[in-house]
Design a protein around this nucleic acid. Structure first.
Lengths: 216, 216
DNA sequence: AAGGTATGAGTGAGCGGTCACTCATACAAC
DNA sequence: GTTGTATGAGTGACCGCTCACTCATACCTT
């Protein structure tokens, strides 16, 4: 995660101004998508001029990428804390589920942004950014699973890579199901109108599901 | 699925012309997204005039919705054949996985289109359409699971609705992982560059995963 | 300290390009 | 002639981006 898409001047402006612009932009991109988000509106809402934005970023896309980058870093940070800790696998997984629930609410627009980019075709730069994140979590999950297999917690019949893939699929969908409009509706259709308030039930049921899958 | 977003005249034009326009439009929307797909380009590629398109549809959105509607119907049809058949649950599930693999390749742009709409915020019409689809599969899955619980195949400790939600999450992600660019890359990162050619392995591993989850 | 000067961040009206949509015209069928 | 359909150049709204200008601040010079 070394890439930078902003001009140097963006680093030098007051913290407050920088943070404000980023938050506004993330909000707009998350709610309207890349194309429908309007630079002029972002400028207005952030209380700065369009000119300034173009002093900080070469293009609209660069502003967008900086937002994504910011989001990726934030998510990664949160996840890593749990993954790196010295706790049993099942405890870690449960913590991740709870983190997803919490994070999807407090940083909802970041996850919407993330969902956004999974749909966007042919924007290689955007992928690259996100691919970096996926690579990291893929490696961490896979090694966790391998470790668990050695300890006999997870059956050796599994390909550790596919197993972590399935796991992460469940987590990713859960994230979207709390944060993104479409997936929220779908979540409610499946599990009832009030499912978004039944966090404990979801944790319990998903843990049961995952735990059972360990040993066919 | 009764809604119609096209004018009556669209029903009256030659089959060939109608099919051609729909396919072209689906292709364009799937590859460029709703906003970046260009009506003028669609007209050109389909070999008809812009004017005609606006004789058949009131707005760009209506053309889009007709495409989505078409996709949803196609997917639904394929899925239902399996779900309604009189076979053991595990056989059904395995068939679904194989269908996903096949369908994601032959109708790739339909699934890209589906992915597309999950990302689009606040477009009530789009939801409605897809919600209808989700509702049907949610009901079918849930009743399958309940049935299996009665037969003692799936543990009674599960909420049937959440269990089918998790199942469908796995299927949905699998679909995207075969069809959509971003998810394909992610799939490869997790499971290796050649995973898209290892269909049998995926079936076997996913079935193991699902089957194990039945009984905690 | 006062006056002179240089710097560069900040501004927003406006340019230019794109694209959804219209409409005057042409054509065909009867 | 009338009705139904097809056409694509044209229109205008919209929006990313530019650029000529402002002005606060910092740094001289005397």
């Amino acid at each position: 995660m070394k890439k930078r898409f902003h001009k140097e001047i963006f680093d030098r402006i007051p913290e407050e101004r920088r943070k404000n612009l980023l938050e506004t932009a993330i909000h707009e991109f998350a709610h309207h998508g890349f194309d429908n988000a309007n630079i002029n509106t972002i400028a207005e809402k952030a209380g700065i001029s369009v000119g300034s934005i173009y002093k900080y970023f070469d293009t609209k896309k660069d502003l967008f990428l900086t937002c994504v980058h910011h989001g990726v870093e934030t998510l990664e940070q949160v996840l890593n804390e749990v993954l790196v800790s010295r706790e049993p696998l099942l405890v870690k997984l449960e913590k991740i589920i709870r983190l997803i629930q919490e994070h999807s609410r407090s940083q909802r627009h970041l996850i919407m942004l993330y969902n956004e980019i999974t749909a966007e075709s042919n924007s290689e730069l955007t992928w690259e950014l996100a691919a970096e994140m996926e690579t990291i979590s893929a490696r961490v999950y896979s090694s966790l699973v391998e470790q668990a297999q050695k300890e006999g917690i997870i059956s050796g019949e599994y390909s550790p890579r596919l197993f972590s893939f399935f796991l992460d699929n469940l987590f990713m969908m859960l994230q979207f199901s709390y944060a993104c409009d479409y997936y929220r509706e779908r979540f409610k259709i499946y599990a009832g109108e009030d499912i978004l308030e039944k966090d404990e039930l979801v944790v319990e049921q998903l843990m049961k599901f995952i735990k059972a899958s360990f040993n066919p």
